[in-house]
Amino acid sequence: MFKRLKDLKKTILESQVWRSMFRHDYADTPRNRTLQIMSNVWMHLHPPKVRRHAIRIRFTWCMGGITFLLFLVLTVTGVVLMFYYRPVAEYAYADMKYLQFDVPFGMLVRNMHRWAAHGMVLTVWLHMFRVFMTGSYKSPREFNWVIGVILLTLTLLLSFTGYLLPWDQLSIWAVTVGTNMARATPLLGHEGPFAHLAGVTPRYDARAFLLGGTIVGPPTLLRFYVLHCIFLPILASLLMIVHFWRIRKDGGISGPL
């Protein structure tokens, strides 16, 4: 029997199907350690080897990685929420209640999405804080820092556009307060400095462009939904690709010369 099992294992491991998927065996050799990373598209975000100090939690606090993990959690839970949520003023609030009370695990998914979003804002700040304190923005990583600042802004905007979607008192008034500032944009907001020079009116200014009207109403909900579920996540993903690629191209995690 035992011999048969071994034979079976051998047959499977040497079959064409198996070998088409896995290019190396699992024995712990330096070659295989490298291949584990190199021959796996996800693992391949890493280099085969890193400098010893770079894997210390005390150095990176793992904050960039945690931020990325939270982004992935948000993507998965967000897609689940999209199956139940309609960005229409008549339905949005009811759909949230439906998620809360009727959809199996609906409240759990919503909670995870909400708390991961708050968490991501925190971790992205802490990540920036770490990168500053280790001076990792210095040459040759200047550009990656700039990409990072854009990612930080996008994270805040993602969180802010999502805040409106439950369409309850908390969300519309928070977004009202937040977008009121756009009224005061110099030149482009109707209450801002020099507004009369640009000829903007309450109906046609920076804020109305954001909201699709003069108040936070149904068009705003649709706008924020599209920004939140399509435009901003795609933009952030693209920039994350650049961010990770640049880390490798700039010589890996920074360290003492």
Binding site: M96, Q169, L170, G217
Partner: peptide, 28 residues
């Protein structure tokens, strides 16, 4: 955390009833 603490949910949006204070999300 998500099992223990529910995300906030208030009354439906009502443009005629401004809460006092109206606060932006905490990070703003």
């Amino acid at each position: 955390w998500s099992l223990g603490i529910d995300a906030p949910m208030e009354e439906p949006a009502n443009p005629t009833n401004t809460p006092n204070p109206s606060k932006a999300p905490w990070y703003f």
